[in-house]
Design a protein around this nucleic acid. Structure first.
Lengths: 209, 209
DNA sequence: TTTTGTGAAGTTTTTCACAGCG
DNA sequence: CGCTGTGAAAAACTTCACAAAA
């Protein structure tokens, strides 16, 4: 069965919320309540959850722990992803410390940077290699996912190295630019400027009305 | 006229691309070419651009400089936004140095942090205030946009301060959590974990097929 | 009675396909 | 002739509304 992208996005939100509810010792939650907490319509919540089988109890709601496990198995592959990060600048360093990568679902195998001060050393316990060795090191270490926090001008070159490695299958890029990839390589982009411009656009629109 | 969100997102991409083409001295570009460079269908490009009047030349394409100016006036309000940033950790520091905020379209008026080491000092030329003073300082400085790079647990409290200030109208949050805001306040979220999970979900899906 | 699960309706967004203009 | 601008068709996504289960 194919799952739509907006649904996956919401599933991640459900997952996080359920983790919190679980912590709080909450036993049961309704689609209505989930919706209120996340700003999503209850009918949308139910539709999203129903794609993966009947998991709720009519007249009662969803059992928090059961739903939590359920959503987890949908989202998380039961394995550890081998990842690497290119560009150990401010943003790269921030990402290294970010909650998102603290999970045991990932293992950060390598860092890459042009700066010869950084390459050759270990940073936060992860070995850092020079940019030139990217393709070779990623191939050797069988890196599957590359996190890109390099300047826009360097992004495409890094993507090319990832393609060259032969093992990288997905890229999460923070570079404020569009990169071109061959069919089959998945790229997701977190683009700060784009989100900021969208916000300003709608603020301006509201102002004008 | 109302513009759909996906259109605004693409407009930002067109704008960036046109900036590059302009630098390169390119004079004319077709919807087909724009589409290829950004991974968007040519018909989509034409539809997006046509919402704002006839700007291309049939049989020729779009005049780069003219289109660049045109998209700029659609996106950028002709004024400077007064912004502040809460949470001067690794991510906050990275954002302070990010291209997105280097534009003369913004003026970073204040920083906020709970750490007493940081509050009271200037960081990169911007005064940093303690968390408790957020609402008051933002009100005084007439901050319109708040950038949130605090831990998930602190996000809602910051949003509440922003509401209290009375001047903040938009928030760009990087906290990996959902925040609740009153009607009228615009929130955009850049959620690293969500993008990462989406990427893994589709990688896993491809693996299974 | 309460709340799920879900077809069907509605809305939004994308794509097609071609007339029309330079 | 080539490429835009745009109605009309298609696809994607959301919301409604209600039957059915606990």
């Amino acid at each position: 069965m194919k799952v739509a992208e907006p649904t996956v996005e919401r599933l991640v939100q459900y997952y996080r919320l359920l983790g919190q509810l679980h912590e709080e010792g909450r036993r049961v939650v309704s689609s209505q309540q989930i919706g209120e907490m996340l700003g999503i319509k209850a009918s949308q919540v139910r539709k999203d959850l129903s794609y993966f089988g009947e998991i709720g109890k009519r007249g009662v709601g969803y059992h928090v722990d059961r739903l939590y496990e359920h959503v987890m198995t949908i989202l998380s592959p039961p394995r550890v992803w081998r990842i690497a990060l290119a560009g150990v600048g401010h943003l790269g360093a921030a990402l290294l410390g970010h909650t998102a990568f603290k999970s045991e679902k990932f293992h950060m195998e390598a860092l890459f940077d042009v700066d010869p001060e950084k390459a050759g050393r270990e940073i936060l316990g992860v070995p850092c290699y020079p940019f030139e060795d990217m393709a070779a090191v990623m191939g050797e270490k069988k890196i599957e996912v590359l996190i890109l926090s390099v300047p826009a001008a360097a992004a495409q070159a890094c993507v090319d190295k990832a393609v060259e490695s032969g093992t990288v299958r997905g890229i999460l890029t923070f570079a404020p630019t569009t990169v071109v990839v061959p069919e089959g390589l998945l790229v997701y982009s977190v683009d700060i400027s784009v989100e900021l411009e969208k916000l300003l656009f709608y603020l301006k629109e509201k102002e004008e009305r």
